[in-house]
Design a binder for these strands. Structure first.
Lengths: 274, 274
DNA sequence: GAGCATTTTGTAGTAATACTACATCATTCT
DNA sequence: AGAATGATGTAGTATTACTACAAAATGCTC
């Protein structure tokens, strides 16, 4: 339906095209509006809108709304339009949601090519895991730490530059450092990675391919999630990173087998008792 | 939606139940009918049908038809298989990814019914925003704080019981507290909410409907994301919560308009310069 | 470039639809 | 049995979508 409107756009008269464009930009708000309201919002007359509806194949305005409702709920509509000033709250919310879904789907498609096996192999024998990240990635690091420590291996999160540098300085042969960054362009972190590797630690980077941090890692998860173009769409890529860490933790839990299982169960019970 | 009607069935009066059953049996035909036609087909009166629609959560007959149209077009959605011992690393990773996608899709479907407008209205005039959460929800709170403070309103995150209680104690008329919890069963937090409301603060809860925390809030985002059945699938629901906060932040940014925009842009530049 | 023809757009009115207030009927409880 | 509560339908009203028609706007011919 949305696709259909998009196709029609060229063959429409100016006023009807304005309708088409407005509806594509604010589908949710269109759904919530009556014919008269829509006419006012778009700045045209009611019959023009009705004529537009007919052209899309609907029998009238109400029918078009029904079809639109169907189209919006179909997950196929994730061609994510950016949030724009003037969007209704409902439209903006759905656009962000679609973007989030899209980010995770992209990561899902990427996953088969990522070196999970290697990471698991490196982590399973480690003495400790250290998760490092700055800014928003710091939250990802903390979140990951929170999850991984339940597997029974000492884990910590470092979320500022001095701490990361110090951690790298004292790291040793049996440590695994997991460096999380969206851009991969923090020179200080890249330096910390080199230092850690010189100390014999294993460094896994979760960042953009070709970046300095990717270069200074023992192993890299190349996450090229489309960057957030608009200032309104904050960090949907971070969701993808979190999902990635989830997947890694589960893979690791499976590899560790019985002992990790026991620890997981215990920490769950500890929460349940509270 | 269809599920909801099915659940309601027992609590309906005889005439309304006949409506429910007919709609469940012939949903497509219901969509194509007007209110009067439906009344005739079912053998009841128009107001009975309208009352039934209201009970499903819709605002009237037209709104119910829209929701029905959405429900009918939704494919049965991602059946997520659980991770099991013996899975290969690749299998496990893909299963976790599918689960993550599922969690966000569920939240996406929930979103249109959540009170974003009310939340935005309450938050836009506030003196400060405080995000509270324990455990994994604490990370969500911190993450949210990190995002929201960029809009230019003082924000903080409280992630342990004593801090939350103290914050509630000193909160006042112009403060908005956002309480995040998966279960909603932390009595201490619920107590903090009551206290804060007595002080005149506005309390928004993001938690399960019917829980103590939901009851003690000024406004509740009812997030009933299926609980993580297996110990292997950690917190995919948390992804949904994060996506929800993203959406709220964007909606808020739009409502705040120019000033928020400027602040967002500035904080982006601050990062870019580093 | 004026005048006709065609398409596009808006105005005003009409028919329908959804919704509401109220009366009637059924059911339950004292 | 009779009052009280709740369920259901009737009749009326206000919206809403739609239509016929007229006014602009655009394109074409001479």
């Amino acid at each position: 339906m949305l696709k259909r409107i998009d196709e029609l756009r060229d063959s429409l008269s100016p006023a009807e095209r304005r309708v088409a464009e407005w509806v594509l930009a604010h589908p949710r708000e269109a759904l919530a509006s009556t014919l008269a309201e829509l006419a006012r919002k778009i700045g045209t007359s009611e019959p023009t809108i009705v004529r537009f509806c007919r052209r899309t194949g609907a029998s009238g305005y109400s029918d078009m709304k029904l079809r639109l409702a169907e189209a919006l709920s179909r997950p196929a509509s994730y061609l994510h339009r950016d949030v724009a000033p003037g969007d209704s709250v409902g439209d903006a919310v759905m656009k962000v949601m679609d973007r989030s879904v899209h980010a995770i789907l992209t990561m899902r498609d990427l996953a088969p090519n990522l070196p999970f096996e290697d990471a698991v192999a490196a982590m399973r024998g480690a003495r400790q895991w250290v998760f490092c990240g700055l800014g928003a990635s710091g939250d990802v690091a903390r979140d990951a730490c929170q999850k991984f420590f339940r597997l029974g291996v000492p884990s910590s999160a470092q979320t500022d530059t001095p701490s990361i540098l110090q951690t790298a300085a004292v790291s040793g042969r049996e440590d695994v450092l997991l460096m999380i960054s969206h851009s991969g362009r923090w020179q200080d972190v890249a330096r910390a990675q080199r230092q850690a590797r010189e100390n014999g630690a294993y460094v896994i980077a979760f960042t953009q391919p070709g970046s300095p941090m990717a270069g200074e890692a023992s192993l890299c998860f190349e996450c090229e999630v489309g960057e957030d173009a608009s200032i309104y769409t904050p960090m949907s890529s971070r969701l993808a990173q979190l999902a990635l860490m989830d997947a890694l933790q589960v893979a690791l839990a499976l590899a560790l087998g019985e002992s990790a299982n026991r620890n997981l169960q215990r920490s769950k019970q500890a929460l349940g008792a509270a």
